[in-house]
Amino acid sequence: MKSPYQCLAVDPDASDEQIRQAYLAKVKDFPPERDPEQFRIIQQAYEQIKDQKSRLAYELFHVPALEEFEQLLNELQPRRPSLSQFRAMLAECLKSKRYGN
């Protein structure tokens, strides 16, 4: 569950200009043609905190979805497959490579 501040790597008390600079730097790192999904996330984060009005609206009216809280829990206690499940997946890949899909 990343806040837009974390997403753009800025302090919550950063100025409009600092946020803009961080946004431009991130866009440079993830241009839309290379990573459209990440670009969308960066853009959305910027829209949420780009000026005082947006930041206030984010603070007062943004409620993360239930799935985001679940994801946070997953991050705290990461789920992992068993070794045999991992091996089975690799064996399946091997089979598909050998005999075609």
Binding site: L73, R79, P81, A91, E92
Partner: peptide
């Protein structure tokens, strides 16, 4: 394939309906 799906499901966890009470208890304890 089946094994790939099992592998992914083990990482993602069950996609059962999120229950606020359960999530709250876990978050609070953490």
């Amino acid at each position: 394939g089946v094994a790939a799906r099992t592998f992914l499901a083990a990482i993602r966890g069950k996609r059962d309906q999120a229950k606020p009470k359960r999530i709250f208890a876990k978050l609070l304890s953490e």
